[in-house]
Computed example of a mutant assay.
Amino acid sequence: MKVNLPISERQIEGELIKTCSGRELRDELGVTKDYTTWAKAQIKRARLVENRDYLLTQEGEQLPSGTKWRSEYHFSIDAGKHIAMMSGTQRGSEVRDYFLDCEKKAKGIPSVKDPQIAAVIFALTRVDAVEQEQKRQAEELAKIAENVAVIEARTQPENKHFTVMGYANLIGMSVDTRTAATLGKRCASLSRQKGLVIGDVKDPRFGNVHSYHESVLQEIIPMGAKKAA
């Protein structure tokens, strides 16, 4: 069955973005659930960001009893592709292909009848989309890592205990995970020699991570960093 999903342009954060109606997208996917509930579920599931991946508006319908307002979600083409693929249905694949065709037309990519050439063009387009998604995910992970590093640097400040990566971040030094593990072993050894307590800190990425007294970190990290450099 042919996909009939109008594409329009809307201003999102000052940029003109091609979007589709969330209500019409739901209908094309053959979903019968309550629209607002369904839309919110897709946003959460795909981790979509308002005013970047979608726009939420309040639109009124004039009735004899007065104006009835309802929420309308307008998804970007990329967001629409994510939602279509997450449906896990044949119809979802058809809707995804429809969005890809829309992107090709927008970029001026000609329609090719030869199936082999079309397959090559599709593959190249898909690779570009995957690279863009990986770049977006890498940026998000970098932000998360930065936030975690700030939290680490403030761990147990009352007794001057920090994790290796937390202390390195505090003094403006870049330490990767592998180097941090090596420095941690040295910090643990020196802490035992001095009879200092080795703490435990919960880390969302690695589970429990040891923390060491500031005096130990001051001795170990500068030396380890010089060797790493």
Rank of each mutant, 00 (worst) to 15 (best):
P157E: 00
G195H: 07
M223A: 15
K68I: 15
E59I: 14
T19Y: 04
S65L: 04
C187E: 02
T163D: 04
V95T: 11
D97R: 14
E50F: 07
N208A: 08
T67M: 09
K81M: 03
K226T: 05
L16W: 13
L217C: 04
C102H: 09
H74G: 02
Q62G: 04
G30F: 09
M173D: 00
V209W: 05
E139S: 04
I198P: 08
R45K: 09
G14M: 01
D101C: 12
A119D: 03
S71E: 10
N147V: 08
V3L: 07
Y212I: 03
L196I: 15
E131T: 05
D78L: 07
I151V: 10
S21F: 10
A39I: 09
L190T: 03
D176R: 03
T125E: 05
T19W: 01
G184Y: 04
Q58I: 12
Q11D: 13
G60C: 05
T163M: 13
L190Q: 00
T19V: 14
Y167T: 06
G199R: 01
E131D: 07
Q90H: 07
K227M: 11
E152M: 07
E15T: 05
P222G: 07
L29E: 03
K227F: 15
I121P: 02
G207V: 05
L217R: 00
I171D: 01
G60E: 10
D114H: 02
M223F: 10
I109Y: 06
E15C: 07
A84Y: 15
E140V: 13
